[in-house]
Design a protein around this nucleic acid. Structure first.
Lengths: 209, 209, 209, 209
DNA sequence: CATGAATGAGTATTCATTCAT
DNA sequence: AATGAATGAATACTCATTCAT
């Protein structure tokens, strides 16, 4: 029997954050199907019962993960001030951001993919994911619309359809058998051509005309 | 004396097909996570043990579903003779086919999406899905390459990247909050413009210049 | 589908014998706990249903195995005419026979051990095994009694107890960690001394004074 | 923060002991073949899941039973101080102990027999049983060797072979159709004669010359 | 807050047996 | 006689959740 009186313990929100992080790591690793409450608790360094105290059910856990994703998503976008840039430059930054996440924070995408899948059959999750998805889509629509108005993009580009194509293409690179970034860069370049965007400035990382 | 445990019986094949159909319906409905052998058996109108007689394990079941998907996929493609058509015409047909499946056989996509998700963590499934995915991608690449050569598409279109964009865009329409076909048609039209494809002939269903 | 019309098939008793042999082989290999009707049928080269036609239940199968053991046991004993031999000589022959079976037909012992174990809780099996066990024990008792009367063995040897010791010792050699025959021979020699039996004749294989 | 899944709790140990006792009782009653986790749990007065919490698998259960047997075995032997006794006296005590166990704790033998049987095909069990078996055999060997040296037994008694005969004979009494202790006593007396041991002292219970 | 222990409702799989052909 | 197919009843094991302390 080991004494378990470690009082240097984060409580409340900190606990919930730890649980969310553990859950996300495990979802990224094994998917929703293989997600077990005991594993999450173990990963968070606490007992299952303790976890249930903080997050009373698996449903609540899923909501917590969704919220955690949304927080990260929003924070990530807010961390990038884009005032004063042209629509074309912003679109290139969006691509660069996606590339960055794709390479260094792929778990975010993995968890998101799992949540989207689950959202199809669970209206609660769907409700939690919709804002995020909508926010992202609308943001691209706005960029494209502004770019069309300002002459950065093709004049007959349909911003709504363009946003779907843009996001679909980026996400599609992750389904592609070629996991390297080389294919991603070709797709990015092709999108630029397809949208009538001129060659990128030398300073930007997407450069590959 | 020869051991006669040959499951490639006509009856056996029929049963296996029924099981595959039941499994696919349930996967489309509830996803892989909610897939229960008892439910599949019930849906196929047989006893659980009978199901295990024909499909000995859940792993085998997944393989069966993968094979069933592939069979359908191939059959669907072979059902469309495209000899004598231009690359542009064929691409429009591809879009029309996707639209058709999206509207009348959406379960096929749902099941495929589930399988792709599962494939990430299960190499067996991945191996079963790869050929299908590869076949589809390669086919689009071929169409685009031919179209570029024949002047149907933009001269600087990158067939590899274009295929990823094309498929990503089509699949992306299903993630889109707007479930109607109206958005799909806008995306299709935008793709046509993006690839430098001229306006479609009046007879084709994608028409929406 | 493979055609299964092999009419060069043993029937009736021959089938039952084949089934018994298959069952015995499997019991020797994996014990009663791991005995499966399908495996027996497969080993006998027939279908499970066919096997059930000939041997209608597992209980019947056990009885069949018991009978098969008894038949072998009796046959083995009858194959050794001992007329005209002294009690001491016969006892040595018994030891030699045991040694022979132990080395070249150990499965017989294994199956017997399994049956005896099962007999404890299954009166049907017990009933089938008792005669065999009794026959063997009585035979040793008779040999010992005759040997005492004829002066081959110690005068105060109790034939009943002696038989238990004799059989227990021989069977005990199989529980012994040392699986070689060397230990068996030492035990045999010690029994001879314990029963007051003089040194064996040069021709007999047990020789090891 | 330390993970606290330590099952060596006082409560846990008590539960494990109860489970072991229940398992042993059921093995004695119905053998290994008829051993069901649900029955053990019911006998121990707990839920099946609770049982799996303490003993995670049937394999672990078997190990637990083996350990429990070994503990009892060792405890029983340690409970009998034999300092200052002659080899012959100790052998008689061994016989008396066996008789005692045979009459009042026969389940111990039954379970042991089942375990030995299972050990043949399961190396894990074999490993757990070997020490016990070896300990017992070696102990008898030592007694016999000392007795030979001290003149208590026949000078030409082979201690190794003698131990096998001794144990085989005692165990053989349990296979014998006559379940009463009368036959056991005859065997014990015969062993004494066979080993050249003089008549026992009047005070000892085995006395039956 | 935290935890060891407990549990009900599942979950895939197994197996002897039966049955239509 | 023989077989492919079918099935009911079990069986070990899992998991989210609860509860006493």
């Amino acid at each position: 029997m080991i004494a378990c009186t470690d009082h240097n313990t984060p409580t409340g929100d900190r606990r919930r954050a730890a649980i969310a992080a553990a859950a996300r790591a495990l979802i990224a690793e094994r998917g929703f199907e293989g997600l077990r409450t005991r594993d999450i608790a173990a990963r968070a360094g606490i007992n299952v019962a303790t976890m249930h105290y903080h997050v009373p059910s698996k449903e609540a856990l899923v909501a917590l993960v969704a919220q955690s994703l949304r927080d990260d998503f929003i924070a990530q976008h807010n961390a990038r001030p884009r005032a004063g840039l042209s629509a074309g430059e912003i679109l290139r930054l969006e691509i660069a951001d996606f590339r960055e996440t794709r390479e260094h924070n792929i778990d975010l995408f993995r968890v998101m993919a799992e949540m989207m899948e689950k959202a199809r059959r669970d209206e609660n999750i769907a409700a939690a994911m919709r804002p995020m998805q909508g926010f992202w889509h609308r943001q691209i629509v706005d960029i494209l619309a502004r770019g069309v108005a300002e002459g950065d993009f093709r004049a007959d580009l349909d911003p709504q359809a363009g946003a779907t194509i843009f996001l679909g293409a980026l996400i599609g690179t992750m389904r592609h058998p070629d996991p390297t970034s080389a294919h991603f860069d070709r797709v990015a370049a092709e999108i630029a051509r397809a949208f009538g965007l001129g060659p990128s400035q030398p300073a930007l990382p997407v450069a590959k005309a």
